[in-house]
């Protein structure tokens, strides 16, 4: 079981209020991702749940029990740190066994669990090495191994892949998703990587300055962002946001249209623009197009074959059924 509920949780460091009152429900077995810009309080929130920081006010409930004052060791949560935080003087085996030894488990059971975790994580050949003799990806797996042997109620990950190179990151991302499918244990995962958030999450929590801007499945957030912040934050490349006269034509203060929902044409269309930089990714091409309707260039996603000269004139046709409209407060108009 791993159901975690935050009720009106706040956190201040001295005078600085990092988390204003915040409510959040995390269901058993869910994979929840916290995303948000740097400094928005993602790590702080995770550490509050872990018990490494004390809440300033509010309640944290784990599986129906008030855990607000419970010390970290008793919350049955396991955390994987960004720096891995492995114990450098212990072998991989001892590292993974550490929480079990602290729990005074008997040696046979410890061995069984450590070997089990090692085989799941492909660490069997490295059990007698020290962390200093491992690659970044292997260290990451040791950190995960140390977390899974405890069979915790929930896993907490704080940007676990940010120290890895791009290829390894893709691999580990799949491994963690795989692990979640297999263990079906609640996981809370902090990242600022778009792709990690979209691909791994059952539920994404978008944070800004400690406030929850929106909670929902990746597709919900993508298809119906609640406000302009979420609209601009989720999706890569970013949604085009246009304010002013053009927006008012659609009875909104700001309109948003995703790059893949604009069609290009040489002859006719709703808006007229001039091609700026083109980014050819092979599968897709991103055109950055300057136009009269907005001071910011618009981004358009087209097939990989399409190509235009720099400075060529084109016509853009947004697919109006995919247009997002926002009011003066930046909130979505249904």
């Amino acid at each position: 079981m791993g159901r975690i509920t935050l009720e009106k949780v706040t956190k201040s460091f001295g005078d600085v209020n990092v988390i204003p009152p915040l409510d959040l429900d995390i269901n058993d077995g869910e994979f929840v991702v916290f995303v948000g810009p740097s400094g928005c309080g993602k790590s702080t929130l995770l550490r509050l749940i872990a018990g490494l920081e004390d809440v300033s006010s509010g309640r944290i409930v784990i599986d129906g029990d008030d855990a607000t004052m419970v010390p970290p060791a008793k919350r049955r949560l396991a955390m994987v740190f960004q720096s891995y935080a492995l114990y450098p003087h212990m072998t991989v085996r001892k590292n993974i066994a550490f929480p079990l030894r602290m729990a005074k488990m008997d040696q046979a059971e410890i061995d069984k669990r450590v070997n089990g975790a090692a085989s799941v994580l492909n660490l069997t050949d490295y059990l007698d090495r020290r962390p200093g003799q491992l690659s970044g990806g292997q260290r990451q797996r040791v950190a995960i191994g140390r977390a899974i042997v405890r069979e915790p109620a929930a896993f907490l990950f704080d940007e676990p892949l940010s120290n890895l190179d791009a290829a390894l990151r893709v691999g580990m991302r799949l491994e963690i998703s795989e692990l979640h499918k297999r263990l079906t244990t609640t996981m809370i995962y902090v990242t600022h990587d778009q792709v990690e958030a979209m691909t791994m999450a059952d539920k994404i929590v978008v944070l800004r300055a400690g406030n929850i801007e929106q909670v929902g499945s990746p597709l919900e957030l993508y298809q119906a962002p609640r406000n302009t912040f979420v609209a601009g934050f989720i999706g890569s490349p970013k949604m085009n946001l246009v304010a002013g006269a053009e927006a008012r034509k659609h009875e909104a203060e700001t309109i948003g249209i995703r790059p893949e929902h604009i069609d290009l044409s040489d002859t006719d269309g709703l808006w007229k623009g001039r091609i700026g930089v083109s980014e050819h990714l092979g599968s897709d091409t991103f055109f950055h197009i300057t136009s009269d309707i907005s001071s910011e260039p618009l981004t358009v996603r087209a097939t990989g074959e399409l190509s235009y000269e720099y400075g060529a004139e084109v016509y853009l046709s947004p697919r109006l059924e995919h247009l997002h409209r926002f009011d003066a407060q930046g909130l979505r108009i249904a």
Partner: peptide, 26 residues
């Protein structure tokens, strides 16, 4: 590294064990 101590704390090591297993070897 402070995170090592925090990790040990979450792993269920009380203060004196953190001293013996983490601080002293360091």
């Amino acid at each position: 590294d402070g995170e090592q101590l925090e990790a040990a704390e979450m792993d269920g090591a009380p203060v004196h064990k953190r001293f013996v297993y983490i601080v002293l070897p360091h």
